[in-house]
């Protein structure tokens, strides 16, 4: 144990654990909604001004690691506001979204949750994910990466105000991204 953790009081540590528990529970519930294809409820977890962004990653030399990921304003795989997220959900529900009919089977595993910052109103949270997808008879996709979220406190829970998704792939090794992260 570091000196730091010995110095903070037992009450503070319990409060931190509770917060961690609430955040984890929020993520597990979110993952359950996605895996059950309950997209309307999933969408409600986002604030109206939310931004959902998956940058493009590039193999670059160590000295150019600052340019590894594209930034907002540059090209990305996802660069969505809530209106488009809602559009994607509407698209999935048309019965004509062929890439998801028959639906993919997904399992979202969320781990390594870390509350990086908390200003009382908004939390900055990092988590690792493994999204496993199988499709049709023999197609298998694994996406592993990091999510960096801004979670806004709401009545007793959270809403996602910003989500950045960093995949561990440069050339995307799948034919599409018809699922959510």
């Amino acid at each position: 144990m570091s000196n730091h953790s010995q110095m903070i009081s037992r009450d503070e540590r319990i409060a931190a654990m509770l917060l961690h528990y609430e955040v984890e529970r929020f993520y597990y519930d979110e993952a359950a909604l996605l895996d059950a294809h309950r997209y309307d409820e999933w969408l409600a977890l986002f604030t109206d001004d939310a931004h959902y962004f998956m940058p493009i990653r590039r193999t670059r030399t160590q000295r150019e690691m600052d340019k590894e990921f594209t930034k907002p304003g540059e090209m990305a795989f996802f660069n969505d506001d809530k209106i488009l997220l809602a559009g994607r959900v509407a698209k999935l529900k048309t019965g004509r979204s062929w890439a998801e009919d028959p639906p993919s089977r997904t399992r979202h595993l969320i781990t390594n949750v870390r509350i990086v910052k908390d200003d009382g109103r908004t939390l900055e949270v990092e988590s690792n994910f493994h999204v496993y997808r199988t499709r049709l008879n023999s197609e298998e996709t694994s996406w592993i990466g990091l999510r960096r979220d801004l979670l806004r406190r709401t009545d007793g829970s959270f809403q996602i105000a910003d989500r950045k998704i960093y995949l561990e792939q440069t050339v995307l090794l799948s034919r599409n991204l018809s699922n959510f992260f």
Binding site: M75, A76, W98, L177
Partner: peptide, 18 residues
């Protein structure tokens, strides 16, 4: 450009399967 084409594009995501 992000919205229409590319793997998450609302058009192109349905092309690959065909």
């Amino acid at each position: 450009a992000c919205r229409i084409f590319g793997p998450a594009g609302v058009l192109e995501q349905d092309d690959g399967e065909n």
